[in-house]
Structures are given as C-alpha cells and as structure tokens.
C-alpha cells in the first residue's frame, strides 16, 4: 500500500458516497445512468468473488464488502425506491456492445484460464468502459448537475491515481500487472474530456454544460 493507491481508494469511496447521498437527499436519480450502475455492480461482483478464496488484508476485505454493498444499494435506489425519477429516456446506451467485447477480450487476453481469474479479467475490462453509458447520457442531455460532475470527477481520479500507484510499484517492487495497467489507462483516457470541462467550468463555479 502506498499513498497513491490509498488516495485512489479514498476517491473511489468518496465517489460512491457522493452518488448515494445525492440520490438520497434529492430523492431523485435524475441524470444518473442506471445502466452504468448495473455495469459497476457487475464489475464488483465478478472481481470480488475472490472474497471467498483469497485473503489479502482486513482493509481489502472491508473495502470490497463496502463497494459491493453500495453498488447494490445504488441499484435499489435507482430501480426500486426512486424509480419514478429515473431518466430512462436518456439512458439508451446498448450495454451489450460493452459486455460482449469484454467477455471475448477476457477469454483472449488473461493471466490464467481459471474461473476466478477469468472473472477478474472480465471485471477489469468492463470497469474500463462501464462509465460510457453515463457519459453518453451526459452528452445526450448536454449537461450534468454539479453534484453529478463531482461524482464523475472522483470516480475518474480514482483510476488516474492508480496509474501513479502502478508506476510507483513498478519502481519500488518491480510489480506490474499489464492487464490492469492498460485497462486503467484506457479507463482514465475516457474521462479526459470530462476532466477538462470539470476543471475549466465546475471548479470555477459554473454549471457543467457541454459546448453547443
């Protein structure tokens, strides 16, 4: 564990809490892509099946349980409790276009052909693109609530900090996981446009609106 990874995990946690609080406080999931949240729940479920097989540390296990529980809580809020506020008309990204390539890619490029490893690989590839339905929704409506943009920023910053952590680990431990690194870089690049607008607009107190 190094400071970059810890900061990354904290950003990840903050993102999830911000999203849950936003939905809970406003009693609405307007502007939130339920499809991205389904994909994230799938990411955590397939990655953290190792909770039953490998123990890394108490920190790891607790965080995994939090990520799993919060992702299903988010789905419950969107699809059950505040279903009436769910903006399904704008949440039209076809997730099979992400799921099928991720399944194929995880069968082609993996560290090992064991069920748990294949699920882990799939979860890494899927996480890289899971935000696309949300970004698609923002681009469709042309705007995002400020709190939603904070959520997206924290979620994007998390993987960007992991990249710094991987560079650090490469030099200090000679540790490198090619699959996670390449997927993590792609994941971060997908947020690049958003980061730019967030920094130039939201941090200056303006609304998050895409240029017309």
């Amino acid at each position: 564990m190094n400071i970059f990874r810890l900061l990354g995990d904290i950003c990840h946690l903050v993102a999830i809490i911000v999203l849950l609080l936003k939905i809970w406080k406003t009693r609405s999931c307007a502007g939130i892509s339920g499809k991205s949240q389904i994909l994230f729940a799938l990411v955590y479920t397939t990655r953290y099946v190792d909770l039953f097989f490998t123990y890394v540390s108490l920190y790891n296990s607790v965080m995994k349980v939090i990520f799993l529980a919060s992702s299903y809580a988010t789905l419950y809020l969107i699809y059950v409790k505040f279903k009436a506020t769910y903006d399904f008309n704008h949440d039209t990204f076809r997730i099979e276009f992400l799921l099928i390539p991720c399944v194929i890619l995880s069968l082609l490029i993996t560290h090992d052909y064991s069920p748990v490893e294949l699920l882990w690989t799939f979860s890494i590839y899927l996480e890289a693109v899971a935000i696309l339905p949300q970004l698609f929704m923002v681009s469709k409506t042309g705007e995002a609530e400020t709190i939603t943009s904070h959520y997206l920023f924290a979620l994007g910053a998390y993987r960007a900090l992991y990249i710094v952590n991987w560079i650090y680990r490469y030099y200090t431990e000679s540790f490198i996981d090619g699959i996670a690194v390449v997927a993590g870089i792609i994941q971060t690049i997908l947020y690049a446009d958003f980061f730019y607008l967030y920094i130039t607009k939201v941090l200056k107190g303006k609304d998050f609106k895409l240029p017309a």
Binding site: D50, F67, H111, E117, D177, I179, A180
Partner: peptide, 10 residues
C-alpha cells in the same frame, strides 16, 4: 499468457 499476478488491489 505470462505470469500469474496476485491481485492485491481493489
């Protein structure tokens, strides 16, 4: 496919 990597990250 390369070495098996221990997944100690989240």
């Amino acid at each position: 496919m390369g070495d098996i990597v221990a997944h100690d990250e989240l």
